[in-house]
Design a protein around this nucleic acid. Structure first.
Lengths: 241, 241
DNA sequence: GAATTCCCAGATGTATACAGCCTAGCCCCA
DNA sequence: TGGGGCTAGGCTGTATACATCTGGGAATTC
């Protein structure tokens, strides 16, 4: 049964979603047998999925021991964002250079810019309740930006590394409950990044990217320290990782 | 038979060595069954090892198809070095900052510096034949530098990414046949990097690292273009990757 | 009462069996 | 002689069996 979309892939996607959405909490035991029974697969595909998730940092795994959903620690979050800064500022710079020579890239980001400015305008006109309700559109927009960066980053290693770090970031988002105020500043930050990219200004794009990630990290940390047991999820406030 | 050093690990290490040393040539077929028989293991550990190697870029693997030793292309080599530049210049900068606050780090690099200067001095005194014969010591020294960077890089994601890129670089080394002239300039470049790190000068460390990798890439490319079939290994000169 | 030791349920590592898919090579036909 | 279809072999994906090990709790001892 060697189908293109095999069971291993299905188990992987399912587990990834469950971990990203915090449906599976950090520290939860991941028994191959139990998961296999739950997801209707045997141990082999489950095993493979767990290994893949382990390399993406969503699962803590040591040979011979029980695999567990990766813990979340303040130090780990800092490290993650620091690394993302290294990767994504470089990617932003490369993409900015790319828009000057590849029309498709320029078009894509110009279109994204106008989408963002339209949304930003209507968003600013909303009251707080409406703003809070449109957070899904906000996420769709920012995710679209990330996808563009990955898609137009011509270095495949860099693109893959960024993609692999995304899963962890997505999980953290579910702990931070971004409010309307942060959404507004984040929209600003995105606008600055996109403009730099469209203008082909690599240093500005890199700087804007670093700034955005710094602000996002700060908002996240404030959120974590303010409510370290949000949604029943423990966040270790030590400096490990 | 779940020993601490399991068969999966053994198969992985063995395959990795065989690929790095070009004993297994790019494009060589990696059949799970055949490898299992050769290495005295069953398909399961071999499977796992192949997946791990695929992640490190040493194996080209697509679901349902035969896994093959990763091809080497000029474009791929460029991408690899560009990515290494992103990672390692950042790490060098971080480690430079580290030596100012952590005595162990400072000591380690000062010791490495004196080792390198001693070797450099004696190396310059050798004739060409002697220099060519001491290339193993040269490699030991430069690898020691890489290990120090990884060991004292406080960001675990960055450290892991650098470590995972090393296997591919090691394989490429076997194609370039670094000569005494390049060894000398490489020693210089390393001395500059280490001095910047010891002095705690992060920007200088990053710049020196970029310079070193640029020079190394150039030497490698010259070598590849000059003899693209070195050791019976085909190097694709297209721009893929 | 606390620490230590022993023990067993359950988990992992590995081997092997079975089912579908891909490929390569041969044969047949125009 | 060249091209297309067919068959056979081997390969991967998945399931399951077996040996060994982990680790968590109960009983025991100081």
């Amino acid at each position: 049964m060697a189908r293109a979309t095999g069971k291993s892939e299905a188990v992987y996607e399912r587990l990834k979603q469950d971990i990203e959405s915090l449906r599976l909490k950090p520290g939860a035991k991941l028994s191959e047998i139990q998961l296999g029974e739950e997801l209707g697969a045997s141990r082999t595909p489950v095993r493979e999925a767990i290994r893949r998730l382990s390399r993406e940092g969503l699962v803590d795994f040591a040979p011979g021991e029980l695999a567990r959903v990766a813990a979340i620690s303040l130090g780990g979050v800092r490290s993650l964002f620091e690394f993302r800064m290294t990767l994504e500022s470089e990617a932003a710079a490369q993409v900015a250079a790319q828009t000057q020579v590849q029309e498709r890239a320029l078009d894509a980001f110009q279109q994204l810019l106008s989408q963002l400015e339209m949304f930003e305008e209507s968003f600013r006109a909303m009251d707080a309740a409406q703003q809070a309700r449109s957070f899904q559109d906000f996420y769709t927009l920012t995710e679209s930006f990330d996808q563009h960066i990955i898609a137009f980053c011509r270095n495949p290693y860099l693109a893959r590394a960024i993609r692999e770090m995304r899963s962890q970031s997505l999980r953290l988002r579910h702990l931070s409950h971004t409010g309307p105020s942060r959404m507004l500043t984040s929209l600003d930050e995105h606008r600055v990044m996109i403009k730099a990219i469209v203008n082909g200004d690599s240093p500005a794009a890199a700087a804007a990217c670093r700034h955005h990630l710094t602000q996002t990290l700060q908002a996240l940390i404030d959120s974590l320290i303010g409510a370290p047991y949000e949604a029943g999820v423990e966040v270790r406030l030590d400096s490990a990782g």
